[in-house]
Design a protein around this nucleic acid. Structure first.
Lengths: 172, 172
DNA sequence: TAATCTAAGGCAATATATTGTCGTATATCG
DNA sequence: CGATATACGACAATATATTGCCTTAGATTA
């Protein structure tokens, strides 16, 4: 989120670095505002934006039998330690249930509860959709698709950076 | 970050809601990955992504005389209470200084210190620029500009949602 | 089959994000 | 000029994010 002029590196390089500065600064702000305004949208349901990501993930047909804590953390791209805390609060509130995996007693499987499903599908989703419509009011379908494409590209590059040291030169 | 099929709302509506789901989900993931990989890029300098946003903000020519805590919080779009904590850690580490504003004794002015400026300009910025180049490796200048445009548009809409109740119908 | 390696999840420490509330300071109004 | 309203920043509570490290469980190897 650097907001100062880059050192001189050619017109093109300077332009791109300056715009990169601004892009990441705005991405940082977007994240905070998503947390703030998105959590407000579902605060009456007792949810936060992070919990809605979890409930969304648990509602996928492919994980109806439950998903392990580790797989859920990978899917959401957060640390296992973080997801543990999130899930224990959601279990406390009755949205999800945790159970030991019979096939691997180290692992725990997460499933959405009946009341969690109700809160999610009946109470929260209409508000979430309304929120999306407000935030993307001036986006066409093409704009939405293109921004998604850019986010995916950035994510891929960040995942590449996140991989073990062999694949990047920073801490070799 | 809802990841399930929207209820039927016409082909166009469903497509847009589905893409909105994916867009916000990826935005959420991007934010976490920016925190994780971005902080790693500057961890040797003892910085985090949030602190780099602060140092970037303090390096602007327009605030060389210092900026108030409240104005900095507004600029970064975080709460005053959050920025207070961030700034006290950065003061502890010698990156910034805080002083009472002579014109308004409620307010405190934040300035970057000499050592903070050195850490920022000499040590951190080259790594930050390298980080940007890695994350935006496959982005043209036009792609970067367009992504920035989308982020600005989303931010404007979020700010509108964040404004006092009169301007949105949710909690009126 | 025992030793070694890897995996899964959570504890602990630390940083960062929000809202509600409070004390002090300044601005506005009658 | 005093009363009232608003501003500024921080404390407190809570939620969420990371990394390092530990215990237990499962997989692999000699």
């Amino acid at each position: 989120m650097a907001k100062q002029k880059a050192s001189i590196a050619g017109s093109n390089g300077t332009t791109k670095i300056e715009m990169a500065n601004r892009l990441f600064f705005r991405l940082y702000q977007c994240a905070n505002m998503l947390h703030k305004t998105g959590s407000r949208a579902v605060e009456k349901e007792g949810l936060t934006t992070q919990q809605w990501a979890v409930l969304g993930a648990l509602s996928r047909k492919s994980v109806q039998g439950g998903v392990s804590v580790g797989d859920l953390a990978k899917y959401l791209m957060v640390s296992r330690q973080n997801i543990t805390g999130l899930l224990s609060r959601m279990a406390r509130d009755g949205h999800i249930a945790l159970a030991t995996d019979a096939r691997d007693r180290r692992a725990r499987l997460v499933t959405i509860t009946e009341s969690g499903r109700y809160v999610w599908q009946v109470l929260a989703l209409p508000k979430i959709h309304a929120y999306y419509e407000q935030v993307l009011a001036d986006f066409s379908v093409n704009d939405t698709a293109r921004m998604l494409h850019y986010l995916l590209s950035i994510l891929e590059n960040m995942e590449r950076l996140d991989a073990p040291a062999a694949s990047n030169g920073d801490d070799a």
